[in-house]
Amino acid sequence: MGRNRITIIRPSGKWSLINLKELREYKDLFYFLVLRDIKILYKQTILGFTWAIIRPVFSMIVFSVVFGKLARVSSDGVPYPIFNYTALVPWTYFSASLTGSIQSLISNVNILTKVYFPRVFVPLTPITAKLLDFAISFSVLLIMMAWYNIWPNANIIFLPALIFLMFITASGISLWLSALAVQYRDVRHATQFIVQLLLYAAPVVWPASLIPAKYRLLYGLYPMAGVIEGFRSSLLGTRPMPWDLLLSGTLSAFLIFFTGLSYFRKKERIFADVA
């Protein structure tokens, strides 16, 4: 198998958005890269996987005090802590996977300059590995729902699609930024600050119902808006499913993903030279 495969090497050779056959051939590598990320993340820590819960839970406590109690931000009729935590679960995943993957090519440079394998695996590894943290913090959300006696409604069937949209959004942005960060290290310095801005741009501490109706489609171009409001709709049932936000969000998420993928594939051939 592969014994008689012919590989042609030439400058900017045949270009493709994605080589599925090659990805399949290397699928075991992807599995072990994700496993590595999961295993090393909490090595030599006292609290281990509890860290996956601590981050969103403590953010929730701070936000509940500042925005819920002091600033009295509207929470669409549910208690502020669960209103906020429902948003923090996807948000924490999104911000953690972004910070992890933007760094990924730079921190794996010793492998990139020594061996060939499909480079897309590198930024996609932290994004996939962080799904475990997501699952853990999500289970805390279920406990909180039971505590507040809130039961999910029929919209819960859309939850897997929302998680998929969240994954595609994080992947698309990471493909863009990780490839840029190899050549322009400014991206690394900007990451933290961009993620901070994106937090307040997303309806995490406030409800999207504050956005005037005529701007909703435009606002939805930020895919996390639809994801977060979708989570609230399917789990808390505060509002109907925000189809308008999700429509423009899905469009822009896929646009970012495919342009990011093509930019990444165009740039990957020079990673070893500039990194």
């Binding site: 495969r5 012919i6 042609i8 030439r10 060939y116």
Partner: peptide
């Protein structure tokens, strides 16, 4: 080994590298 790309010219390789 396809870690870096040539500026010009080509190479053909048979089999797994």
């Amino acid at each position: 080994s396809r870690i870096t790309e040539p500026t010009s010219g080509s190479a053909i390789v048979r089999g797994r590298v």
